[in-house]
Simulated scan of single mutants.
Amino acid sequence: MPTGVAIRDPREQLFDAAERILLRDGPNALTSRAVTTEAGCAKGVLHRHFDDFDAFLTGLVLDRIGRIEQQSAALRASAGTGTVTANLTDALSAVFESVAVAIVSLVTFRDELRTRLRQVRPPGVPVLTEATAMLATYLTAERDLGRITPDADVETLALTLIGSGHLLFADRKDTPPAPAATHRVVTTVIGSVLREPADQ
């Protein structure tokens, strides 16, 4: 293992390595040695940037939450364009084809990580809570534009979409569901509030 080798943007390199391990091998395989080996750097690099491994994992989860927040801005900007069904299908796929499902498993697996996250973010399941807020914000915008009914309960719709999406994508390590399956879930959940024909 190389030592003393400078790496570019080490925090992001370590986060990306941890994400690959999570997606490939699950939370049980995630150790500081596994992360630094995957990143191709000395073990000391991780400990130069984080107080301990749980601090690293907290940083990883918060970094991935930040990505959801960026996606939220893009989804909100898409209101009024395309179709509501297609926009939601793409958003759900983007969330769950990423590391979201594995992050939920990781947080469930590590008590200390849950404790630290409670100190720095709102209650709820990390990533899924932010994804639910993202969909609720988007649906509110579409309701304001008249593309869904004015009495649509956007919070419940968002929760239902995220819960259904999580079940659809969970335990599908090698073969994510076909886009048509995600589309079918979205159509079923929001069909009664749409004011436009659902796309086929």
Score class of each variant (00 low, 15 high):
residue 1 M to H: 03
residue 3 T to I: 03
residue 4 G to I: 05
residue 4 G to C: 05
residue 6 A to Q: 09
residue 7 I to K: 00
residue 8 R to N: 11
residue 8 R to P: 05
residue 9 D to L: 13
residue 10 P to R: 08
residue 11 R to H: 05
residue 14 L to M: 09
residue 15 F to R: 01
residue 15 F to A: 02
residue 15 F to E: 03
residue 16 D to I: 01
residue 16 D to V: 06
residue 16 D to S: 12
residue 19 E to A: 06
residue 20 R to V: 00
residue 20 R to D: 00
residue 21 I to D: 00
residue 24 R to G: 04
residue 27 P to G: 00
residue 28 N to L: 05
residue 30 L to Y: 04
residue 30 L to R: 00
residue 31 T to S: 08
residue 31 T to I: 03
residue 32 S to H: 11
residue 32 S to L: 02
residue 33 R to L: 11
residue 33 R to K: 10
residue 34 A to Q: 02
residue 36 T to F: 00
residue 38 E to M: 06
residue 38 E to H: 02
residue 42 A to N: 07
residue 47 H to Y: 15
residue 50 F to T: 09
residue 51 D to N: 13
residue 53 F to E: 13
residue 54 D to H: 15
residue 54 D to W: 14
residue 54 D to Q: 14
residue 55 A to E: 13
residue 56 F to D: 09
residue 56 F to T: 12
residue 57 L to S: 11
residue 57 L to P: 09
residue 59 G to Q: 14
residue 61 V to Q: 14
residue 63 D to I: 02
residue 64 R to M: 14
residue 67 R to Q: 15
residue 69 E to W: 03
residue 74 A to Q: 14
residue 78 S to P: 14
residue 80 G to S: 10
residue 83 T to K: 02
residue 86 A to S: 15
residue 86 A to D: 15
residue 87 N to K: 06
residue 87 N to M: 08
residue 88 L to E: 05
residue 88 L to N: 05
residue 89 T to H: 10
residue 89 T to W: 01
residue 91 A to I: 11
residue 94 A to V: 06
residue 95 V to D: 05
residue 99 V to M: 07
residue 103 I to M: 05
residue 103 I to F: 04
residue 104 V to T: 12
residue 105 S to P: 01
residue 108 T to D: 12
residue 108 T to G: 10
residue 109 F to S: 02
residue 109 F to P: 00
residue 115 T to Q: 03
residue 118 R to A: 15
residue 119 Q to L: 12
residue 123 P to L: 13
residue 123 P to G: 14
residue 124 G to K: 11
residue 126 P to E: 08
residue 127 V to R: 10
residue 131 A to W: 13
residue 132 T to W: 09
residue 134 M to H: 11
residue 135 L to D: 07
residue 137 T to R: 09
residue 140 T to G: 11
residue 140 T to A: 13
residue 145 L to V: 04
residue 145 L to I: 05
residue 146 G to F: 08
residue 149 T to M: 07
residue 149 T to S: 15
residue 149 T to H: 12
residue 150 P to H: 12
residue 150 P to A: 10
residue 151 D to P: 11
residue 152 A to H: 03
residue 152 A to G: 02
residue 152 A to K: 06
residue 153 D to Q: 12
residue 157 L to Y: 03
residue 160 T to C: 06
residue 162 I to D: 06
residue 162 I to A: 10
residue 163 G to P: 06
residue 163 G to V: 01
residue 165 G to V: 12
residue 167 L to W: 04
residue 167 L to S: 02
residue 168 L to T: 05
residue 168 L to P: 10
residue 168 L to S: 08
residue 170 A to L: 09
residue 174 D to N: 09
residue 174 D to G: 07
residue 175 T to E: 15
residue 175 T to S: 14
residue 177 P to A: 01
residue 177 P to W: 11
residue 179 P to D: 08
residue 179 P to N: 04
residue 181 A to F: 07
residue 181 A to D: 14
residue 185 V to P: 09
residue 187 T to A: 14
residue 188 T to Q: 08
residue 188 T to K: 07
residue 195 R to L: 04
residue 196 E to S: 01
residue 196 E to G: 02
residue 197 P to Q: 03
residue 197 P to T: 03
residue 198 A to Y: 06
residue 198 A to E: 08
